[in-house]
Design a protein around this nucleic acid. Structure first.
Lengths: 251, 251
DNA sequence: CCACTTCAAGTGGTTAAACCACTGGAGGGA
DNA sequence: TCCCTCCAGTGGTTTAACCACTTGAAGTGG
């Protein structure tokens, strides 16, 4: 019927959520308007109403939609209410169209830089010796898997997690989790973090040196320069890989 | 029966999600273990199985739980997989117990600082004249509602949103949305942002001056000092209000 | 003609009972 | 000992029905 049942192994609810989400992100459903009625929409998507409801619960959690009892399900403006999770979906959507979402990758790197730079200071001030040596050890491990892309990414993330932990800031830790989930749900995003693996490793090592001096402020300042340079190089690398020009968005 | 149906006007699914989430965050369900079976758990919570499933869909989106077809629903370690959204629930939970979650408020302020400081540089480099004048105007408006706490918070958030927009970084904008939702779902968190309203306003004005010079780097450095001082004062204020001592956690 | 009330249609919210799809382990056979 | 089969228990989905709420149009009174 409506839906193409072919070889789908995914959960139906998940698929339904994906399709509605995509429609919203593409702007096919204008903010402020209502979603089609559940009964109607369910039929169109080829799922039962309850499966659709499960999907809607998900979209609600993502801040894309707000069901109003007795009235309808409002489509929200995701730029005003959408959660960070959406970055992944937005990127994925762009890549489906064959486009590498440069602006988004850049934005993500910027976000990382913001956090990383200040995190260095927190770590310098708060971390225990054990945490620092764990970080050292992780760098060594990472150096040994530098040829295995998959292992490298995993190792990289692990280092980042240790660093975040050593900052003793729960909000930051949870934000990190969100980003990690985004990355491994939408592997295309790895590009932003993996494209310049060797450079990354060098920076990590240097950061750790700085942290161990205990001078948080200075560490932070230097970290800023390091990460800025790293990110520039990474974006450059990406533009080479994809053959696209690195263009500034927004502005 | 099990559930107390009293005057609850909340959606049942929401209530179920809240209860399960609370149990997880309190550590009553250890990570790695399975949730009780859906049929069983639904009965305990006094809702139907399908309502429970709706709740579980929500918890899955939050990274607290992962249902495995045919096996069970795993409880995840929220420190490793939980999203930023959880900050709100964690705070709310602490306040239910009469405790002001100092560490969390501090963490949130730190997160804001990280973003704000670098955001200033982005805005200085990328914003349009229109965006800047809109920011100016918003500061004026805010000055006029400084006596109405509710209006003040709203105005404050609006200014922040404009600022974030002017940074032209979508990832940041979405992160901001997440934080906003957290705040107005859990009004206790406002404390961290409202406790020192006048000081905030002064800082905003000063930030804008800096931005308009166009020297992003310098603006960023000064912003850092300003926000740091502001946050210290805010935490101090909170500790006075609540009568608790401002103690550094972690460290 | 307007303001108010009533009520019916349509929406999301919830429930029931049943079946499907999958996992994991118990038990039997080679 | 190993492998295969099978089945009991789990989450996933469907159906059909009812409840709770919102909305606005029709009806009523002024």
């Amino acid at each position: 019927m409506a839906g193409s049942p072919q070889s789908v192994r995914k959960r139906a609810a998940e698929g339904a959520a994906d399709r509605v989400r995509a429609a919203i992100l593409r702007g096919e459903l204008s903010p402020g308007s209502d979603l089609p009625g559940e009964r109607d929409l369910a039929e169109r998507l080829g799922v039962s109403r309850l499966t659709l409801r499960s999907a809607i619960a998900r979209l609600e959690a993502e801040g894309l939609v707000r069901p109003v009892h007795g009235s309808g399900t409002r489509v929200l403006d995701f730029r005003e209410t959408g959660g960070v999770d959406l970055v992944g979906y937005l990127a994925a959507q762009a890549m489906e169209g064959g486009v590498v979402p440069f602006a988004l990758l850049r934005d993500l790197l910027e976000l990382r830089r913001m956090v990383a730079v200040e995190l260095v200071e927190l770590v310098a001030e708060r971390s225990s010796p054990e945490e620092l040596s764990a970080l050292r050890a992780q760098i060594e491990k990472q150096r040994q898997v530098v040829d295995d892309p998959q292992e490298l990414v995993a190792s990289d993330l692990h280092f980042a997690r240790l660093l975040v932990r050593a900052g003793h800031n729960l909000a930051l830790e949870l934000l990190f989790n969100t980003v990690v989930r985004m990355i491994d749900q939408h592997p295309g995003l790895e590009l932003a973090f993996r494209a310049n693996a060797e450079g990354t490793l060098a920076v990590y090592s240097r950061l750790l040196d700085l942290i161990e001096t205990g001078d948080g402020r200075r560490a932070s300042r230097v970290a800023r320069r390091l990460v800025e340079r790293l990110d520039r190089a990474t974006l450059q690398r990406i533009s080479e890989i994809t053959g696209q020009t690195y263009e500034r968005s927004g502005g």
